[in-house]
Amino acid sequence: MSESRPKPPRARRRDLVVEQVADETLVYDLERHRAHCLSATAAWVWRHCDGATDAAALAARLGRTLGRDADEEVVRVALHRLARARLLEDPLPPLRARSLRSRREALKRVALLGISVLSIAAPAAGQAATCITRAACEAFPNGNPRCTGQPCCDVAGKFCRSQGCGQTCCCHV
């Protein structure tokens, strides 16, 4: 029985804020509050995911655009990075490298072509603000909107939260 070919990838467009910064592309995901920085090549792959062009065809076009070889395996790695960032409409089947060496070789080619997708979680207001002492955090009754994750000054790695606390907010992971 033959495997059905995966659907050609389609770029997600809804609920995104996209900003061009020199040759990089910044994408803010309004649904998940994550921000991504796409290198020029990663952004090229993303923009050409039109739901009709499969990975092999993308690789051929990318190679012509860059003026050097770009194989299908490299494009598949790029697509997986975009999918992991939730920038494609549909999930992709898992990557299957023939061997660990083959996968390492593919990743080297990905790096040489400058394909990168860097992602961060956008902070909630409290998380980006000045830290709060534990005493100040515990002065808020539980459920208070100020328990929004402001970092606790005197408890490293913990944030002022409602969940997992008693009658007042507490410094929690």
């Binding site: 910064v21 020199a22 990089e24 592309t25 910044l26 509050h33 921000a35 920085c37 796409l38 860097l118 961060i120 956008a122 902070p123 909630a124 207001a125 980006a128 603000a129």
Partner: peptide, 17 residues
């Protein structure tokens, strides 16, 4: 790079969301 620099700043931006 400028894009990565913006992400660094965004991680500390209060009205980011």
């Amino acid at each position: 790079s400028p894009g990565r620099g913006i992400l660094e700043l965004l991680a500390h931006t209060v009205p980011a969301r």
